[in-house]
Nucleic acid binder design. Structure first.
Lengths: 245, 245
DNA sequence: CCAAAAGTGTTTATTGTACACCCATGA
DNA sequence: TCATGGGTGTACAATAAACACTTTTGG
C-alpha cells in the first residue's frame, strides 16, 4: 500500500519465460478484478497462473497490452483469454507502479473492475491459466504481487460507483424482487439498509417497474416481481445521480 | 475523446530525436496539468517544446518515466525539469492510451493535476522546454496530441476534488478573507455562489478560524482575515466530506 | 397457529436554497 | 454623501433517518 522502499530489481528470472508473444508491450499489463454476486455473497474471479512468475498461484486475471491495442480492448481480451469471460463492462481503476511489484522485470499494471453475474458466464481456463474459479471475498487465497492492493482499490471504486449509478441490470435475473435488489446493495456496500427507506429511494428513481406477478417459489410470502426500465436505467447510468444509503 | 480508428503508427519520425536519455521507459510518459489561481482567474502552465515531435508548440509539461522510478516521483521530476515548478501536490488523473496519440511511436501517458499559486513558484524553462508561461484558461493556444483532452479531464477531476476536500491552503496567502476564498471556489467551479450560504458551509466545517485583524488595504470596507486551522484542514483532506455547492 | 420474510407511512432532524438589508470604508 | 463590496439571519423546501405493525405464505 503506497510507497515502498526501492528493492533490487531487473533480476530477470529465467524461470520459465514460456515464449511471451512477440507483439506485446512488456512494460504495461492489465489486471482485472471481476466481482461476482451470487447467493448473497460477493465473489472474485481468480485463475491459477500457468506460466511466468508465481506460476501455480491463484491471481487476478491479467496479461500484457499489445502494441497497437487500446487499454480497454486489451482488458477485455486478456480477461477472455485467461478466464473465458467476455464482454463485460470494465472500468479503469488506476495505475499500479511499485518498482518491484513484478519480480521478473518492471511492469506497470492498469487495474480494471467489473461486477457480473457468475451464472451468465462459462469459465474456461485459457492461455496463461490452468484453472479458473470464483472465490467468496471472505475466503480469498494468498495472492502474488500487489494483487491484494488492486482488489481493495477496485472494491472501493465499485462501492463509490454504486452511489451514482444504478446497478442490478447485469447481475439480477430479468424479473427480480425488491428484497433481492436490496440484498445486492447490502452485500456490495457491506452494511444493512433500512427496508422502507431503500424502497422509497429505489422506487423514487423509477428505473424499476413493478409487474403483477409475484415470486411464488420463495417458500414464504411471495414478493412482487419487478423489471428494469431500460430507458430510465440507461439514462441514470449516463447522467448519474446522488444515492446516499 | 474515446475510441478512434487505428491509424498507421510506428512511423518513427527521425525529425530530431535529440538523444533521449538512456534510462527512460519509452512507452510511458507523464503529462502534468498545473492549474494556477491568480487575479481571480484560472490559468494553466504550459511550456514550449524544445525537442521531439511538435517542437516549437506550446504543450503540457511532460516527459518519460525512468526505469526505476515511481509514477508520482516521475511526475514531480518531469514537472521540475521542464518548468522549474517543484514540490506540488500532484494527483493522478488517468491513463491516456489512444494508439496514435503520439506521432513518433506508441506512448501511454499518465495525466496528473495540481492547483497551485503561481506567485509561489519561479518558472524556469528546463531540459525540453524553450519557454514556460501561464495561460488563462480562456486563452490557451493550440495544443499537440491529446493534450486538450487531458486538460479537460484534469479540470473535471479538480472540480470533483473541491467537493470532498478543502482547498485554499496551498493557494491563498496565510491570512485571507472569506470573499477571497469564495472567489477561489467560484472560479474553479465556474459558477457564482451565494455569499451567505457559502459562509455558513465554510464556517460550519471549522477548518478556518477568524482573526481579529481585518484586511485594510482593499480600498473598501475591510474584510475580516482568516487563517486555516492546519489540524482540521488536514483531517478533512484525508477523510473527505460532502460539499454540495 | 406459528415462523419467516414481505409489505407499508409517518414523524423528526438535517440540510439545501432562496432571499434583502445594513455597514464600513475611501474617494 | 455616494459607490462599493463586506457582513448578517430567516423561512421554506427537500432530503435523510428512525421507527413498528400487518400480511401472506408453507409447514
Amino acid at each position: 500500500m503506497g510507497q515502498q522502499a526501492v528493492a533490487p530489481i531487473h533480476k530477470t528470472h529465467h524461470l520459465d519465460m514460456t515464449a511471451l508473444p512477440k507483439n506485446i508491450i512488456k512494460t504495461i499489463s492489465i489486471d482485472c478484478v471481476i466481482f461476482g454476486y451470487a447467493d448473497s455473497t460477493l465473489e472474485v474471479l481468480l485463475r491459477r497462473r500457468a506460466t511466468g512468475p508465481s506460476k501455480g498461484m491463484w491471481s487476478l486475471p491479467g496479461g500484457f497490452v499489445k502494441k497497437e491495442e487500446r487499454v480497454l480492448v486489451a482488458a477485455q481480451r486478456v480477461l477472455q483469454q485467461t478466464t473465458g469471460v467476455r464482454n463485460t463492462y470494465l472500468e479503469e481503476v488506476g495505475v499500479f507502479d511499485a518498482v518491484d511489484r513484478y519480480p521478473a522485470w518492471r511492469v506497470f499494471t492498469i487495474g480494471h473492475v467489473a461486477l457480473i453475474s457468475p451464472d451468465r458466464y462459462a469459465l474456461k481456463a485459457g492461455s496463461d491459466s490452468s484453472e479458473v474459479r470464483w472465490f467468496p471475498l471472505g475466503n480469498v487465497p494468498r495472492l502474488p504481487f500487489d494483487h491484494v492492493e488492486i482488489m481493495q482499490v477496485a472494491l472501493e471504486k465499485l462501492r463509490k460507483r454504486v452511489r451514482y449509478q444504478p446497478i442490478g441490470f447485469e447481475i439480477l435475473p430479468k424479473k427480480f424482487t425488491l428484497p433481492q435488489l436490496q440484498r445486492l446493495y447490502e452485500v456490495i456496500l457491506g452494511k444493512d439498509l433500512d427496508k422502507r427507506n431503500f424502497r422509497k429511494k429505489i422506487l423514487g428513481m423509477h428505473f424499476v417497474k413493478r409487474l403483477t406477478e409475484t415470486d411464488r417459489n420463495s417458500g414464504r410470502r411471495p414478493a412482487f416481481l419487478y423489471e428494469f426500465d431500460a430507458t430510465k436505467y440507461g439514462k441514470l447510468q449516463r447522467k448519474g445521480f446522488m444515492f446516499e444509503l
